[in-house]
Nucleic acid binder design. Structure first.
Ligand SMILES: [Mn+2]
Ligand SMILES: [Mn+2]
Ligand SMILES: [Zn+2]
Ligand SMILES: [Zn+2]
Lengths: 136, 136
DNA sequence: ACAAACTTTAGAATCATTATAAACTACGAA
DNA sequence: TTCGTAGTTTATAATGATTCTAAAGTTTGT
């Protein structure tokens, strides 16, 4: 089974029609071995520079949000003027280099176990994310 | 020594002139025992509802940024469309209730020690912030 | 082939934030 | 105290990421 039909199935299973735009966005996001971090504009450039089929920004926004809903992407909590996403959806954390403005993965194995002792009544933990800021 | 003259000194020591706008912003931020979280708009409402001296949004932005630079405020890393700040500048962390969209402090004592095993050459750790998302 | 539901898109709208530049204020020196 | 300068405030405009709109295009099941 080739990648395109895997994406086709992935999309169908999520209730999303496998349009050529969505397949192409899947290719840009999930073809590579390595995971990566990106802003919407990064992704638009990746896609629209390397191909003749141009995808509108609106579609890229729509698709990234849909993929985030479905759990195929994660958004990284950061104090920036634009949203950053991650194709690495495993439980993991981040370095943020404030000088170079770069994100670096911190695998779960790079961080000791995190214990939260405080409980809030009627609420349960959905995720725990650690942001480690780095400077020179 | 009253609060106003404490703020006066605090501002002078930071190289900021103690204008009536900045004193008033200090009062809104630092008079209370309790620390709190706020957006720029929250702060503008707090100030401009409870007083006859209206302060322009531009000044509030400028002052909040200046205070953040000086370390009198912290910005909280969050995926929201607006910046959130914290008058609690101690080392601490946050719950974010995704249903109620509320921030709750997690004191350092509420979180076990955090160990980061990965090192990046030439960089040092500036801060470690944990965001724990809560859901119902 | 057809109708319905879904999708894409250009362009407009929104809105948080930043920039501009003119009027105002604080402050030190004379 | 008066003056000059640097710093500050403000209304307003500009910016830019994101979302909305509605019309045109596509996919899907029958
Ligand atoms: Mn943010
Ligand atoms: Mn953000
Ligand atoms: Zn990552
Ligand atoms: Zn806090």
């Amino acid at each position: 089974m080739n990648l395109t039909s895997i994406y086709d199935k992935k999309l169908r299973n999520s209730g999303l029609r496998p349009t050529k735009q969505r397949i192409k966005i899947c290719e840009a996001l999930f073809d590579s071995e390595k995971t990566f971090h990106f802003s919407i504009n990064d992704l638009a450039n990746i896609i629209n520079n390397k191909s003749s089929l141009k995808i509108s920004l609106a579609t890229i926004y729509n698709t990234v949000h849909a993929f985030k809903e479905k759990g195929y992407l994660k958004q990284i909590p950061l104090n920036t003027n634009q949203a950053y996403f991650d194709t690495n959806i495993s439980d993991h954390h981040h370095f943020y280099d404030v000088n170079d403005k770069k994100l670096i993965d911190l695998d779960n194995s790079d961080v000791g176990p995190i214990n939260i002792y405080k409980k809030i009544n009627g609420k349960k933990i959905k995720s725990i994310e650690v942001l480690v800021k780095l400077e020179d």
